[in-house]
Nucleic acid binder design. Structure first.
Lengths: 207, 207
DNA sequence: GTCTATAACCGGATAGAC
DNA sequence: GTCTATCCGGTTATAGAC
C-alpha cells in the first residue's frame, strides 16, 4: 500500500488535519506531533514556529477551495453550461473538502490581512467572471443583475451548507447525519435549477 | 447619558465583544477584564469559569440570530409577502449583528453538541416552515422544491455575505469597505428578486 | 534527523486583604 | 464586591545528546 511518507509529509498532513478541525487558536503543537507520530521538537525543526506551520497549511487550504474560480473562467462556454458545470463541480469538490470552507472563513475573519497575500495577482479572475455575467446580460441570456450579487449568490448556495452543517443537521434533520448526506447529494441539481430559474430568460420546462 | 452600568453588565458586554471577535479559544480572560475596565479575579467571582461565561454569551448570540425564524412563522401571510418580509427583516437584523453569524457558526463547528441545547423544543418552527412551503407548492404559488432546499437557500443568501465578508471585500471590492456596505444595502432587494424569480410561478414583470 | 529534557512564558483560577 | 498577589498546569520553543 506504500504508506511510507517523508517526515515532512507526515507533519503537513497531521497539521492540516488538526488545524482544519480546531483552528489556529485551538490547535496544540503536541497534538500535531501525536497525529504525525513524531515528537514536538521535530515540528520546530521543520517549521520554526506554529505560525509558520499554520500559514503553510492555510495557504494550501485557501487555494484548494479558491482555484476552482480560476479554472471556471478559463473554459469558454455558454452561460447555461457554465452554471451547470461550475455548480456541480464546485459542490463535488466541497464534498471532498467539506471542512475547509469553515476553516478558511474563520481564520480570514480572525485575521483579514491574510486575504491580501492570498489574492495577489488574482484580479483577472474577478474581471473575467464579471465580464462573463455582463456578456450574458447583454446577450439577453439572463435578466440584468449586478455581477457581484449573482456571483456571491451562487457561491453562497454552494458553500453555505458546508459551513452551517451543524445547524442544518440539528435543525432540519433531527441530528441525523445520513439525512445531511442525502441533502448534499441533492444539492447540485437543486442549486442549478434554483439559479437557472432565478436568472435565465428563456427558461422552459424540460421533460 | 446614563452610561452607568452594573459590573455584571460591563462584564457581559465586554465578554460579548471579545468572544465574538476572537472566539472561545482566541479569547483571554485578561482581555475581557481590560475591556470591562475591571480586574480578572472579578470575572471569576461572577462567572466561575471561562466556559460558563462563554456559554452565556453564546446562548444569547445564538438566540439573536435564530429567533427571527420563530417570529417569521408566527405571522400569517401569503408566501410572496412572507419572502419579502423575511428576507428584508433578516438582512436588516444581520447588519446590526454582523459579526455574530460567523461566531455562532464557528463555535458550533468546533463543538456540535452546543446545537442540541439551543434547539430544545424548537422543532415546531421547522414543522411550521416546512408546512408553509408545502402549502405554497400545493397552492401553485411556487414551483415544487423540497422545503429544506428552499429554506437553506434563503438563509444562505441572507447570511453568507456576512460570514464571507473578508473574501468578498478582498476579491470583489479591492478591499474597499465602503463598497461592501453598498453591496449589503443592495442585498435585500437583490435577494428578494432572486428568490422570487427562482420559485414564484406567476412572476410577472412589474413597473 | 530525531530524540529527551527543560527553559521561558502564559493564562485560568484561587487565596486572602480590604 | 473588588482588589493584589500567587499558584499551577499547560504551551511554545530551544538546548543538547545521540
Amino acid at each position: 500500500m506504500a504508506k511510507e511518507k517523508s517526515t515532512e509529509d507526515k507533519i503537513i498532513n497531521a497539521a492540516r488535519k488538526v488545524f482544519i478541525a480546531k483552528g489556529m487558536d485551538g490547535t496544540r503543537m503536541q497534538e500535531i506531533a501525536d497525529v504525525a507520530g513524531i515528537n514536538k521538537a521535530l515540528l520546530h525543526y521543520y517549521y520554526r514556529t506554529k505560525t509558520k506551520l499554520f500559514e503553510r497549511v492555510f495557504t494550501h487550504a485557501f487555494k484548494e477551495v479558491f482555484v476552482v474560480l480560476e479554472r471556471a473562467v478559463s473554459n469558454e462556454m455558454d452561460f447555461e453550461r457554465f452554471l451547470e458545470k461550475f455548480i456541480s463541480q464546485y459542490i463535488k469538490l466541497l464534498k471532498s473538502k467539506s471542512y475547509i470552507p469553515q476553516f478558511v472563513i474563520h481564520e480570514l475573519n480572525r485575521n483579514p490581512d491574510l486575504i491580501v497575500k492570498q489574492l495577489q495577482d488574482k484580479s483577472f479572475i474577478k474581471e473575467k467572471l464579471f465580464q462573463l455575467v455582463d456578456q450574458a446580460i447583454e446577450d439577453k441570456v439572463i435578466r440584468p443583475v449586478p455581477p457581484v450579487h449573482l456571483i456571491t449568490n451562487i457561491l453562497a448556495l454552494c458553500i453555505f451548507p458546508f459551513v452551517a452543517r451543524p445547524i442544518i443537521t440539528g435543525f432540519a434533520m433531527d441530528g441525523d447525519k445520513k439525512k445531511f448526506k442525502t441533502y448534499i447529494d441533492e444539492r447540485p441539481e437543486q442549486v442549478i435549477a434554483f439559479v437557472k430559474h432565478a436568472v435565465l430568460i428563456n427558461q422552459k420546462e424540460e421533460a
